[in-house]
């Protein structure tokens, strides 16, 4: 009998599927529903230092192979986010990953400290949102030095295992992964949305998204995500959450063979709805049965030449 029990930075997951940040993560109620529907862990929408409405609508637009989004890091006032997180921890039996962001390196540390007081199972620093550049500047994930500094700052201030979420929109993701690992990161999420991209409506000659540009997600970005995870796996020891275009068990296994310990799922909820988590798990088990695998460990990184 095979097993899909997973572990991530010392936290045990009943299965390797994780609800990615920014998807159905506004409220405790929604996260509880996703956890009950079969996700191995759930990630909150990124908690920020102050109330933000995000960008005006439209913030999402469909494109071939996925969607572009520029929600723009909307979040309630910090105190309210923390009380919702408290409710989430009470309601959700599976591990909860608290995603968060700050506007400066110091603020990443401040928010991390406040969030860690609520004791989520894991923290995920969103240093790679591509949609708030006008207000927040370039994401910290775009160069190894700032990625390392922000990781260091957070690690100096909190004890809960820390995941750094990286951007695919860089020349050398491996060097950034190596730098966050050296600064003490406990895991890496790879990747955030790709691009950003843009859609112009030709009848009106207007960009559709109010932010004009938006990060791309969905099946079309999977090859990019798989390549990023593959490159990261070559240079780090810490576990990787592989995210990008996963729609079924085969996609999840491909991501694990690239080097992911567990996988994040988000955009696929549009097409497959919320039972995607249990469907992906069943498909993984079926594949393992068919091909004689008994543990997920046997799959992880299997595509790398040894």
């Amino acid at each position: 009998m095979n097993s899909i029990v997973s572990s991530l930075a010392g936290v045990r997951l009943m299965n390797p599927t994780i609800l990615s940040s920014g998807i159905l993560g506004v409220s405790a109620a929604s996260l509880q529903r996703i956890a009950k529907s079969g996700a191995g862990a759930v990630t909150t929408k990124s908690i920020g230092p102050a109330k933000r409405e995000g960008h005006p609508t439209p913030v999402v637009v469909g494109v071939t192979g996925g969607i572009l989004n520029a929600v723009g890091l909307s979040c309630p006032p910090l105190e309210e986010s923390l009380s919702e997180l408290k409710k989430t921890l009470k309601a959700v039996k599976s591990p909860v990953i608290a995603s968060f962001y700050g506007r400066t390196i110091e603020e990443f540390g401040d928010v991390a400290e406040r969030v860690s007081e609520i004791k989520p199972d894991l923290l995920e620093a969103n240093i790679s949102c591509p949609n708030a550049e006008n207000e927040l500047g370039k994401p910290f994930a775009i160069d190894p030095e700032s990625a390392e500094k922000v990781t260091q700052e957070i690690k100096d201030r909190v004890r809960i295992p820390l995941i750094m979420k990286l951007s695919p929109n860089v020349a050398d993701i491996a060097s950034i992964a190596a730098s966050v690992e050296s600064a003490g990161a406990d895991a890496i999420s790879a990747v955030n949305t790709v691009g950003p991209g843009m859609v112009i409506n030709i009848e009106t000659a207007k960009p559709v998204l109010s932010n004009r540009f938006g990060g791309m997600s969905g099946p079309a970005i999977k090859p990019i995500a798989v390549r990023c995870v593959y490159q990261i796996y070559e240079v780090v020891e810490i576990p990787i959450i592989g995210i990008g275009g996963i729609q079924n068990g085969r996609d999840a296994i491909e991501m694990m063979m690239a080097g992911a310990n567990v996988v994040g799922i988000g955009t696929a909820v549009i097409e497959k709805d919320i039972n995607i988590f249990s469907n992906v798990c069943n498909e993984i088990i079926q594949f393992m049965d068919e091909w004689g695998y008994t543990q997920l460990d046997e799959l992880i990184g299997k595509s790398h030449l040894k």
């Binding site: 920014g22 998807i23 159905l24 993560g25 506004v26 409220s27 929604s30 929408k45 995000g54 609508t57 913030v59 999402v60 989004n69 929600v71 988000g266 955009t267 909820v269 549009i270 709805d273």
Partner: peptide, 9 residues
Amino acid sequence: KCGVGICGQ
């Protein structure tokens, strides 16, 4: 925000 069941708003 999205209308298609993913943003959670």
